[in-house]
Amino acid sequence: MSHQSMSDLIEQYLKSILNETEEEIIEIRRSEMADLFSCVPSQINYVINTRFTLAQGYTVESKRGGGGYIRIQRVELNSHDEVLSYLRKSIGDQLTYKDGVAVLQQLYNYDIISKREAELLVSIISYEAIGKQNPSEDNVRAAIIRALLDRLRYEEKR
């Protein structure tokens, strides 16, 4: 039997709501979600900050305070060039392994790279290849993925 974490359950719930809406956008209240899942509001923040990122194909807008909300929108891009540009803009100076894998997953989902290419690239950005103890690990990973995206954008324009 599979034991899902609270974060997994919250993520699945939010994604199921997103799948049901035609606009591909939802608006939630942090406190209401916390009450629904009997957890602290910071758990909701954690899920949103780690599982609904730009690299994973989502934009998040939040407003704090009494009338505060969190708005999650799935980003649907129409061309390879839009996907590559969007992903390139989403990568800063650092990129965690999880976010790197999410970028590669998006490239695969949009048929920009093959499954084999994605698997090879995952091994290149892995902890084993870059070094978990390397203090600039996330910087190296970001540079690798940025170079990949730039190259793919160059090929797309030819």
Rank of each mutant, 00 (worst) to 15 (best):
P41F: 06
A34E: 03
D99A: 10
E76V: 15
S7F: 06
S5N: 05
Q106G: 02
G92R: 05
K63M: 11
E82F: 10
R146D: 02
S114K: 02
L77V: 10
Q56M: 15
R88A: 04
E22Y: 13
I72L: 12
E155A: 12
S7E: 11
I112V: 15
Y97K: 06
K98L: 07
L18C: 06
S85C: 03
V83P: 01
Q73P: 02
G92V: 11
D99R: 14
I91W: 03
A147M: 08
D138P: 00
E155D: 11
R153P: 00
L121R: 04
Y127P: 00
L104F: 05
S16N: 14
N109V: 02
Y69E: 03
R30F: 08
S79Q: 04
I145V: 15
T53K: 08
I124E: 11
G68P: 04
L120P: 00
E11V: 00
L87H: 00
S79A: 07
L121K: 01
R71N: 09
K157H: 13
S7D: 10
T53Y: 07
I125H: 05
I144K: 02
E23K: 14
V40E: 14
I124M: 12
G68N: 09
L9H: 04
G92M: 09
G68M: 07
E76W: 05
M33N: 05
A55M: 14
I70F: 03
Y46K: 10
Q94E: 15
E27F: 03
N109E: 14
Y110P: 07
Q73H: 10
L120I: 13
S16Y: 01
E76T: 15
D35N: 15
E82R: 10
L87R: 01
L148P: 00
M1Y: 13
V140C: 03
L54Y: 08
R151P: 00
K89D: 12
R141E: 06
V103K: 06
V75G: 07
D150M: 11
E20K: 10
R71C: 11
R51F: 01
D99T: 04
D81Q: 11
A118H: 09
I10F: 00
I124H: 05
A34N: 05
R51Y: 02
I70D: 00
Q106D: 04
R29Q: 14
I145K: 01
I28Q: 09
E156I: 08
P41A: 09
H3E: 13
S62H: 06
R88T: 04
L104T: 03
L95I: 06
E155Y: 09
E24F: 11
S123D: 13
Y154V: 02
L121I: 06
Q4N: 09
M33K: 09
Q106K: 13
V101H: 02
Y108G: 05
L77K: 12
D8E: 14
T21E: 14
A142P: 00
L77Q: 08
D150I: 13
A55D: 04
E128H: 10
Q73M: 12
